[in-house]
């Protein structure tokens, strides 16, 4: 938080417009990727779209939630949370894929 120096409403407004344009671009890009012709596989499209969504999320979290100027405590908390989330999703997915040979149904 920027308690030390005075806040200027105008500069915030400009920054917000900038971010909003960025978010709109990201949305547009995602839709564009989604409508790429069918010879791009869905897996490829999903991966690309999720990358763009992550950038979009970074804009929101970093600037709107002012995480970029946040304290170490909050970072630490979020790093652990993201780690456990990745563990939950990753290990579960891996466990579901890693069946003993010859037992998969299809």
């Amino acid at each position: 938080m920027s308690d030390s120096h005075p806040v200027d409403f105008k500069s915030y407004l400009q920054r917000c417009i900038f971010i909003f344009v960025g978010v709109l671009c990201a949305i547009g890009l995602m839709i564009y990727i989604s409508y790429l012709p069918p010879h791009y596989s869905w897996a490829f499209k999903v991966a690309l779209i999720l990358c763009v969504a992550s950038i979009n999320a970074f804009l929101v979290a970093g600037f709107l939630m002012h995480l970029l100027s946040e304290k170490k405590l909050i970072y630490t908390l979020l790093v652990f949370t993201v780690f456990f989330f990745v563990g939950l999703m990753g290990l579960t997915l891996y466990a579901m894929q890693d069946f003993p040979m010859g037992t998969m149904m299809h």
């Binding site: 938080m1 304290k71 405590l73 909050i74 908390l77 979020l78 652990f80 949370t81 993201v82 456990f84 989330f85 939950l88 999703m89 579960t92 997915l93 579901m96």
Partner: peptide, 30 residues
């Protein structure tokens, strides 16, 4: 810590929300 109480509280709450939606997104992927 440089933070007031409620901000610690809301970030903790959001962390748990990440895990809540994380569980649902995991279900989606799976």
């Amino acid at each position: 810590t440089g933070i007031y109480n409620a901000k610690v509280g809301i970030w903790l709450f959001l962390a748990s929300e990440v895990m809540l939606f994380g569980g649902l997104f995991s279900a989606y992927v799976l």
